[in-house]
Amino acid sequence: MLLRENIPASYIVGKIKNEVVFVTLYSVFIAVMYNTFHFTRISIPIAVPTILGTVISLLLAFKSNQAYDRWWEARTIWGAIVNDSRTLTRQLLTYVDTKYGPSEERAFCEKMAKRQIAWCYSLSRHLRRQDPLKGLEKLISAEDLNYIKQYSNIPLALLELQGADLRHAYKLGWINEFQQVELDNTLTRFSNEMGGCERIKNTVFPATYGTYIHFSLVLFIMLLPFGLIEFFGVVEVPVVIAIASAFFLIEKMAIHLQDPFENKPTDTPTTTISQTIERDIKQMLKVNYKQEEKVEEKDQSKMFYIL
């Protein structure tokens, strides 16, 4: 998940350490050969790597922009999930008459609201290809848990149970026809939002596009020492390393942002969002959120940055 933490330099360097080692050895080799063996004094006009670098910069900028669009779309969808989860709970508490204290109607509202919390957590883990059933026993009944275990798509099974309970409430007269339609529309939005997340998750960023840019970047780095050696001499080594590191970091940033559900520091923060939804819904239900055992404790942010 995306974290509001200062990223350690060791984490940043770790992402490009192999590339930096290669560039260092290569640039040192070129400098040694150029200064030791005069017959290998090959240099090219600085304009050649400059033009190639400009083209690669434009391609990387386009790739980064497209990757950020995918990340931002994922964040927008989860923002809608927050709003619709609050809306569903508010509709349940206002449509169903629960003012007389503990009753079947009140139990119905709490059951659907807590199942909505379970849906958020299960969708988060489902998108990250983790166990979507983890922790759900704290929110849903054993009967519901046994039912959804039959499905490969746990969030979809939870939405099916929500729809079934909604129909049951309508038949009992707890909600009227108009209220049933409104609640069903809210459930439909959850289904659409889940589909939007799955579309982002399952749509692979064009591999050929990234591969071609990477090969062009490698070519640029290999030509760069020959363009700088005549002007900088041995100093071209740190210059080449600095330029190459900047390009490789931008490339890595785009690669990480293009997949917002991989449980990385650059992820859409679905776990934290789910915890926010859990807190808000339980407060609307007048449940003591601080005393109740939470489904998932907050992650230790530093764990994301272990190399």
Rank of each mutant, 00 (worst) to 15 (best):
Pro45His: 12
Val237Ala: 01
Val32Lys: 02
Leu172Cys: 09
Phe215Pro: 00
Ser103Phe: 00
Arg125Gln: 11
Glu293Asn: 09
Leu217Ser: 10
Gln91Arg: 12
Tyr11Glu: 06
Glu73Trp: 03
Asn65Cys: 07
Asp184Ile: 06
Phe37Val: 14
Thr272Cys: 04
Tyr100Val: 13
Asp84Gly: 04
Arg4Ile: 09
Asn176Trp: 07
Lys252Asn: 11
Leu156Tyr: 13
Tyr121Ile: 02
Phe231Thr: 14
Ile281Tyr: 00
Ala113Trp: 02
Trp78Val: 04
Gln283Asn: 13
Leu2Met: 09
Val28Lys: 02
Leu92Gln: 00
Ser10Glu: 13
Phe205His: 02
Ile255Ser: 11
Phe29Cys: 14
Asn153Thr: 07
Thr188His: 09
His38Thr: 12
Arg106Ser: 14
Val237Ile: 15
Asp299Val: 14
Val295Lys: 00
Leu307Cys: 06
Leu249Thr: 14
Glu251Asp: 15
Pro102Ala: 10
Thr188Asp: 13
Ser141Trp: 04
Asn288Glu: 12
Arg90His: 12
Gly195Ala: 07
Leu88Asn: 02
Thr268Ser: 10
Pro238Ile: 02
Thr270Asn: 12
Thr271His: 10
Gln116Phe: 05
Asn18Pro: 06
Ile277Gln: 01
Leu60Arg: 03
Lys63Thr: 15
Tyr26Gln: 08
Leu25Glu: 09
Lys286Gly: 06
Leu161Trp: 00
Thr272Ser: 13
Val96Tyr: 00
Leu3Thr: 12
Glu19Asp: 11
Asp299Gln: 13
Asn35Ser: 11
Val287Gln: 12
Leu161Pro: 01
Ile16Thr: 09
Ile175Met: 01
Arg90Glu: 10
Ser122Leu: 05
Ala47Glu: 13
Pro225Trp: 04
Asp144Ala: 12
Ala142Trp: 07
Ile273Met: 08
Val13Ala: 15
Lys252Met: 11
Leu166Asp: 00
Thr54Ile: 15
His168Phe: 10
Gly210Glu: 15
Leu58Gln: 08
Ala67Trp: 03
Gly233Asp: 05
Tyr147Phe: 14
Met303Pro: 02
Val218Tyr: 03
Gly227Trp: 01
Trp119Ala: 05
Ser152Asp: 15
Arg75Glu: 02
Met1Arg: 05
Ile200Gln: 04
Asn176Leu: 05
Leu166Cys: 09
Val218Pro: 00
Lys294Leu: 08
Val23Pro: 00
Thr268Arg: 03
Gln91Val: 03
Cys120Gln: 12
His256Gly: 03
Val295Met: 05
Leu59Arg: 04
Lys171Pro: 02
Ala169Ser: 11
Lys264Ile: 10
Arg41Leu: 06
Ser64Lys: 10
Ile306Asn: 10
Ala113Val: 01
Lys138Ile: 06
Asn18Asp: 08
Ala169Tyr: 01
Leu123Trp: 01
Asn202Val: 05
Cys197Gln: 03
Glu73Gln: 14
Thr76Tyr: 07
Ser122Phe: 02
Ala67Cys: 10
Asp299His: 09
Tyr170Glu: 12
Val239His: 06
Asn263Phe: 09
Glu293Lys: 11
Lys99His: 14
Tyr26Trp: 10
Leu257Gln: 15
Glu251Ala: 07
Val218Leu: 10
Leu183Cys: 14
Arg4Glu: 13
Lys264Trp: 08
Leu58Asp: 07
Lys298Tyr: 06
Asn18Ala: 12
Ala74Phe: 03
Arg199Leu: 10
Leu139Lys: 00
Ile117Gly: 01
Gln91Ile: 05
